[in-house]
């Protein structure tokens, strides 16, 4: 443990040894480099054809995503012709989870409130078979350029790209969206597995910077839903202040919001925390889901499925 202690800041060890089940396994998993993963872009090819073309890389299927694959020898996959023409999209395995939980369908209207760089936008466009409408938004000019590039490369004909404040956009489409994804900007603790700098930047106070924005975005996303519509709130961080506390804040402001249990066959998820920082959170927050690195060999992730009461989703 001493070696691990040298690498992880004491405050990190202190926080997560109290919060994280199987802490030693968690810490060990956080030190392993992430496996390279990709998703087949079904707007351009079939799963079977992509596997045929990439057979030399021996892709292994992800248990919970039928178009997601792991590469043990993935170096250079980004330089392949298959990648250049958008037959595949290099995407972290855990990042494929929010769209799978949201389940967008062909013909629906879907809002992706913090969309750049577009992994989940393009995944949803493919799940919708290039039909209906994906409204993909990001406020940053630089990030929107990357988003447009990925929408182009993936061949998304059902996507509009906006660059504006998420709250303003959500008000403009209030009550009209079948599904909303709020994959919120966060302190990105999950990226520690792929970047040593992420650990260097880690601070116990980083969450404070994001929590206000996250609370605004989840509320904005909820207002955009039509009655019966569903929203996924997700982050790639483990900090409760950016996860369960944000969902609890929505429930305080919109007591009618329903937290649904999310599950994907083949993916181990753990319940959300129901107390944090000496405070009990609403019982419904226990239906949030945590994806831990030691369970599925992914980045850590947080995902919550929320429904606005009313007619059932189409």
């Amino acid at each position: 443990m001493s070696g691990l202690g040298r690498r992880f800041p004491a405050a990190f060890i202190d926080r997560y040894s109290r919060l994280m089940p199987d802490f030693d396994a968690f810490l060990e998993a956080m030190q392993r480099p992430l496996r390279r993963t990709f998703r087949v872009n079904t707007l351009k090819t079939s799963r079977a054809r992509a596997l045929e073309l990439l057979a030399d890389l021996e892709p292994e299927p992800l248990p919970w995503c039928d178009v997601g694959f792991v590469l043990d020898r993935g170096e250079g996959v980004g330089l392949r012709i298959e990648h250049f023409i958008g037959l595949i999209y290099v995407q972290e395995a855990a990042s494929m989870i929010p769209p799978l939980v949201l389940e967008p369908r062909p013909g629906e209207r879907v809002l992706d409130l913090a969309a750049a760089p577009g992994s989940k936008t393009t995944q949803m466009a493919a799940m919708m078979e290039n039909q209906g409408l994906v409204i993909a938004n990001d406020q940053s000019a630089g990030r929107v350029r990357g988003l447009i590039g990925n929408v182009d490369r993936a061949g998304c004909l059902n996507t509009v790209v906006c660059r504006m404040d998420g709250g303003v956009l959500a008000r403009a489409v209030a009550g009209s969206c079948d599904r909303v994804l709020v994959d919120a900007p966060c302190s990105s603790e999950g990226t520690i597995r792929k970047s040593a700098e992420a650990l260097d930047r880690w601070s116990p106070d980083a969450s404070r910077k994001f929590a206000g924005l996250q609370k605004r975005l989840i509320l904005a996303g909820y207002e955009a839903l039509r009655p019966g519509g569903v929203m996924v709130y997700s982050t790639c961080t483990m900090a409760p202040a950016e996860n369960e506390a944000v969902v609890a804040d929505l429930l305080r402001r919109r007591p009618d919001a329903l937290v649904r249990e999310a599950g994907l066959p083949g993916l181990k998820m753990r319940p959300g925390l129901t107390s944090w920082d000496g405070e009990d959170l609403p019982e419904a927050v226990g239906r949030c889901r945590r994806v831990l690195p030691q369970d599925n060999d992914t980045e850590p992730f947080f995902v919550t499925l929320i429904q606005r009461p009313g007619h059932e989703a189409r």
Binding site: N130, L133, I148, V151, G155, V160, V161, C162, R163, V168
Partner: peptide
């Protein structure tokens, strides 16, 4: 630009991009 009819009818805000060039 080319896209689905829903993309081209979207007028709630002014998007930066509608479908693909």
């Amino acid at each position: 630009f080319v896209g689905t009819p829903e993309v081209m009818k979207f007028t709630a805000v002014r998007p930066m991009r509608c479908g693909i060039r």
